[in-house]
Design a protein around this nucleic acid. Sequence first.
DNA 1: GTCTATATCGGGATAGAC
DNA 2: GTCTATCCCGATATAGAC
Lengths: 202, 202
Amino acid sequence: MTDQEKNTEQKILEAASRVFLRKGMAGARMQEIADEAGINKSLLHYYYRNKDKLFISVFRLAIQDFLPGILHILNSGIPIFQKLERFIHEYMRVLIDNPFVPMFILHELQRDPDRLFQVFKDAGIEPSRFIKEFEASVKKGEVRNIDPRHLIVNVLSLCIFPIAARPMMQRVLFDNDARAYEAFLKEREAVVSEFVINAIQP
Amino acid sequence: MTDQEKNTEQKILEAASRVFLRKGMAGARMQEIADEAGINKSLLHYYYRNKDKLFISVFRLAIQDFLPGILHILNSGIPIFQKLERFIHEYMRVLIDNPFVPMFILHELQRDPDRLFQVFKDAGIEPSRFIKEFEASVKKGEVRNIDPRHLIVNVLSLCIFPIAARPMMQRVLFDNDARAYEAFLKEREAVVSEFVINAIQP
DNA sequence: GTCTATATCGGGATAGAC
DNA sequence: GTCTATCCCGATATAGAC
């Protein structure tokens, strides 16, 4: 693979990411992706034979960019409260840097659950270790008795939703002031940690 | 307007809702909507001149079906903790009955924020009363000092996300067992209330 | 109001020159 | 590897009969 080739392929993938992430598979236009990449439409087909293959590449990339750092924290051996704090902090940072990823994944996963979830599984998600660890903490009386799966869903909700629903929340609560909403999101790193920890304290 | 007309128009709107809510504006096909309504494609254009007008009708409907009950609780005069409990209970019930609405609104709002948010505003959302009320409770020391906007976002997150992200969560946490996930959602009515109230207790 | 037939158009995909 | 030109299908939209 020549340098030129690698650059073009990379340019296409980045352009396609931007377009797919905003518009979704159905809403994205090959022409728009080509324009965004500064190349001709036919070149898309040269590198990725059709729209679907290009989409899958983008979907896989979005997940791979997303999971590793997160999983690393979840599987680390630090104490439970500290782990939650670190996870929330790190996860929200990644989300703020990739604001379109959550909606994209949720929307497309709803459109074609089975096929796309396969891509997910291949990336290796495995919450069972955290669940066992949390259950042990409950038994030791370190945390309030709450189903760890509810806790997981709660934490993900509190991190992801404010990013995914930004177009609505920013308008309703902040008069569509982008700066104010960014500050609000930054605050949340601490607010969510505190909220969760208060909620599960015995 | 004859009875027949009203029925057909209604049938179309209901069919269109199902299709748009699942597939989104870009993914929905007029043919599919016609099939779903058991009528001819041309009839869609007879009642709603084009796809966009049909879509807007569905979007407006989705919002109108959604907001009134919620707003009624938020604007009622009951005490703050009780209000939160009622809101969470009622909101989750509506969400469970209309599981596709959240993703639909979020996705479409991201695609065309300004135009679609107008529909939202027309329906009359107004959180400022609740915000003032909550700030008063903070001053009286009834609740922990937390920015009410964070609380609003937290509550909405905890209610909406588990529904919107069901295709993912059900697979990751429940081995894609639909029954188990429904039970999980039912549990959440109480779990979320408890979680939130614990989190904001002084 | 409802149907069949058809026009029109946009967009994904391909052929082929360079 | 990159471009221009073009094909072809699917989907929206319209015309017109009943």
